[in-house]
Amino acid sequence: MAYSDKVLDHYSNPRNVGSLDKNSEDVGTGLVGAPECGDVMKLQIKVNPQTNVIEDAKFKTFGCGSAIASSSLATEWVKGKTVDEALQIKNTEIVKELSLPPVKIHCSVLAEDAIRAAIHDWKKKQGADKPVAVETGR
């Protein structure tokens, strides 16, 4: 199986690896996947409460190279976007950017789920004053 150059690049030099304080009010954490399935992604966002802009994002991923690349790319893409803009990111865009083969599409789905789960967590922390319905998963 040959990997695309972009997957190799994200695998070798993953962007935004690490963790944010999950107890902070401004941080949303998404943890998706399961060890038994061979993929677990943790994606965290730090949101500016005034502007709703995602100022920082971090990830850690247990999974194949494509899963690592998908989540690394997801952190790059959400940074600088508002949460509503970030919710527009589709897994198909990740597939296209990384040239993922069909057997690796689930990696991109998981990355989209991770973004949504992180935003969902952050919104929950903001309480009832910002109720927004969020689709999680598929």
Partner: peptide, 8 residues
């Protein structure tokens, strides 16, 4: 492992 949420 530094990259792994499970290890963390």
């Amino acid at each position: 492992r530094e990259l792994s949420p499970l290890y963390e």
